[in-house]
C-alpha cells in the first residue's frame, strides 16, 4: 500500500480494515502488508484519496 504525502492520518482506513492491519501513528501509517487480502476498503473510505495500491 502506498500513502500519498497529503495523508492526514485521520485513521478512517484503520477503522474499517477487516483484518486490523493498519497502525495509525501521529504522522505515519504502518501497514502489515503480509496479511493484506487486497480488499481495498481502506482505499475506498479515505476522505482525501491518500491511499493507493501499486499495481
Amino acid at each position: 500500500m502506498k500513502v500519498n504525502e497529503w495523508c492526514m492520518y485521520c485513521g478512517e482506513c484503520a477503522g474499517v480494515c477487516p483484518r486490523s492491519l493498519i497502525e495509525v501513528r501521529e504522522t505515519c501509517l504502518i501497514f502489515n502488508e503480509n496479511e493484506c487480502k487486497d480488499c481495498r476498503i481502506c482505499i475506498q473510505v479515505c476522505p482525501v484519496q491518500a491511499l493507493y495500491k501499486e499495481e
Partner: peptide, 9 residues
C-alpha cells in the same frame, strides 16, 4: 471493526 456503511467519511 466498522463496515464502511457504518462509518461516515
Amino acid at each position: 471493526t466498522l463496515k464502511p456503511k457504518n462509518m461516515e467519511s
